[in-house]
Computed example of a mutant assay.
Amino acid sequence: MTKIIASPNCGNSPKMAFLKEFNIAFAKGNIDYLIESVSDEIVWHIVGDKEIAGKEMFRSEMENMKTNKVVELTLYQILSHGKEGAVNGSMKMHDGKEYAFSDFYQFSGAKGKLIKSITSYIIKMK
């Protein structure tokens, strides 16, 4: 089971609540929720590593990542404004590794909930 720790202000707006749920779904490996939340043209840029383009490549990447289980997800900050959002947090993995991350999201529109692009900065902690 994944332990979730989130800042109390992480649900002050519908988009902030959505980004919180999106990150929880990622940590828990809920691929169906993740796929429903992105546009067909999703582009995920993992800085310094790779770029995933399109819903099918996104699904494939999620399937590959599902093997390494997250045991603890901490969400420090979630921000949203218009059609952009950001999440800052950390993850502890089943294998003992720990990562800090910042994700920047662009939505299909200011009122839309489909994610059009994600830029991720991921740092392996000691």
Rank of each mutant, 00 (worst) to 15 (best):
K20N: 10
F104L: 15
V71F: 03
G82L: 12
K92P: 05
L34K: 07
E84M: 11
K116Y: 12
K28E: 12
E98M: 08
K92A: 09
D40I: 00
G89F: 14
M125Y: 02
Y33D: 04
D32A: 10
E41G: 08
A17T: 08
N30D: 13
N88V: 15
N9Q: 09
F101M: 03
S102M: 07
D49I: 08
S39F: 04
K126R: 09
L114H: 10
F18V: 03
G54S: 04
E63H: 02
D32N: 10
I78C: 07
E41A: 09
S39Q: 08
R59G: 05
I115P: 10
A25E: 11
E21Y: 02
E63L: 06
N64E: 09
N30H: 02
S39D: 14
N12Q: 12
F22S: 05
N88L: 14
Y99E: 03
S90M: 12
V38Q: 07
G85E: 15
K55I: 13
S117M: 03
K97N: 05
S117L: 03
Y76W: 04
H45R: 08
N30Q: 01
A110W: 00
I46F: 06
D49W: 05
K69Q: 09
F101A: 00
G54N: 03
S102I: 06
G29E: 13
Y105I: 05
G54E: 03
H81Y: 01
M16Q: 15
S13D: 11
Y121N: 02
A110V: 06
K66N: 14
K92M: 09
K126I: 02
V38M: 08
A17R: 15
M57P: 00
S37W: 00
V43T: 15
P8Q: 09
H81P: 00
Y121G: 00
L79Q: 11
K15H: 15
S117T: 07
L75Y: 04
E41R: 10
L114M: 10
E56K: 09
D49V: 06
S120M: 07
P8W: 14
K116N: 12
S120R: 08
H81N: 04
S37M: 02
V87K: 08
G112S: 13
Y76S: 00
K66E: 14
G48P: 01
N68W: 00
S120G: 10
M93G: 03
K111N: 12
L19D: 08
G89T: 06
A86Y: 11
G89A: 06
S102C: 08
I4H: 07
G89Q: 07
V43D: 07
L34S: 05
K50H: 14
E56T: 13
N12I: 15
S102Y: 02
